[in-house]
Simulated scan of single mutants.
Amino acid sequence: MIQEQEEQYFGIVENGLFNIRQREPVDCDQVRLTSIPMQAAQTPESAQIDLSNYEGKNIQVSGRLSGCWIFSAEVNNE
Rank of each mutant, 00 (worst) to 15 (best):
G11H: 05
E55K: 06
R32T: 01
E74D: 12
S46M: 08
N77G: 12
C28Y: 11
R21E: 14
M38F: 15
E24C: 08
E14G: 08
D27R: 05
W69P: 07
A73P: 08
S52A: 07
L33G: 03
I70M: 00
P37C: 12
T34D: 08
E45S: 09
T43W: 02
I12L: 07
S35G: 09
E78V: 06
Q3V: 15
Q3S: 13
A47E: 09
Q5D: 11
V13A: 04
Q60Y: 13
D27F: 07
M1H: 05
G16S: 01
R64H: 13
R64V: 12
S46N: 01
Q48M: 05
Q30H: 12
Q39N: 13
S46G: 06
E14L: 07
E6C: 03
E78A: 08
Q42G: 10
F10R: 13
M1E: 09
Q48P: 05
L17C: 02
G56K: 00
I49D: 04
Y54W: 13
Q39T: 14
L33S: 00
E14Q: 15
N15C: 01
V61E: 07
V13M: 05
Q48R: 14
C28R: 03
Q60T: 11
I2K: 08
S72N: 15
Y54F: 06
M38A: 14
C28D: 11
G56L: 02
F10G: 00
T43A: 12
N53D: 15
S62A: 07
S72I: 06
G16T: 13
Q8E: 10
Q8N: 11
Q3Y: 08
N19P: 07
I12S: 01
F71Q: 10
I49T: 07
V61T: 00
V31I: 00
Q30G: 12
W69K: 01
Q22T: 12
F71E: 05
L17F: 06
I2W: 14
M38V: 15
S62F: 00
N15L: 06
I36M: 15
N58W: 08
Q48T: 02
V26C: 07
I49H: 06
V75N: 04
S72C: 08
Q3I: 11
P44Y: 04
S52G: 04
V13E: 10
I36L: 15
A41L: 03
Q8C: 04
S52K: 14
W69L: 00
F10I: 09
D27K: 07
F18L: 13
Q30R: 12
G67E: 02
A41N: 15
S72D: 13
S66H: 11
L17T: 05
I20S: 00
T43N: 08
D50M: 00
N76K: 14
R64D: 05
Q5V: 07
R64M: 12
S62R: 15
S46Y: 08
N58A: 14
S66A: 15
R23P: 09
P25S: 09
N53P: 14
G16Q: 05
T34S: 07
Q3P: 12
T43C: 05
D29C: 03
E14P: 10
N53V: 08
E74I: 00
Q30V: 00
M1T: 10
N15T: 09
A73T: 04
M1C: 12
S52Q: 13
D50W: 03
P37W: 08
R64P: 04
F18K: 01
G56T: 01
R64T: 10
Q42V: 11
R32G: 03
F18W: 09
S46H: 03
L65F: 11
Y54E: 01
